[in-house]
């Protein structure tokens, strides 16, 4: 499946159905990531059900702690 993630074309596994599965593939901790999908911020509670579709434009912003 082809997605645009943070402005870059990315190809990810065809098995991915949801935002949560995408985060697992990208090794991101869902608790620390804010997701915008095609211009809409996704509610954290729905990461496990929110579908990911071919061609989606995703912005993934990850909170880190270091300073």
């Amino acid at each position: 499946m082809n997605l645009v993630i943070n402005g870059q074309q990315k190809s990810v596994s065809e098995h991915i159905r949801t935002i949560e599965e995408l985060m697992n593939e990208l090794k991101l901790n869902p608790q620390l990531v804010i997701v915008e999908q095609n211009g809409q911020v996704i509610d954290k509670q729905s990461y496990s059900v929110a579908p990911v579709n071919e061609g989606d434009q995703l912005e993934l912003v990850k909170f880190v702690g270091g300073g």
């Binding site: 943070n6 402005g7 870059q8 804010i34 911020v41 912005e59 993934l60 990850k62």
Partner: peptide
């Protein structure tokens, strides 16, 4: 916006988080 970047992977992202 909430702004992030990755200088090695040439990525930049901004999200309007006001709805949160």
């Amino acid at each position: 916006t909430l702004l992030s970047f990755d200088l090695w992977n040439n990525e930049r992202s901004e999200i309007d988080v006001s709805v949160l």
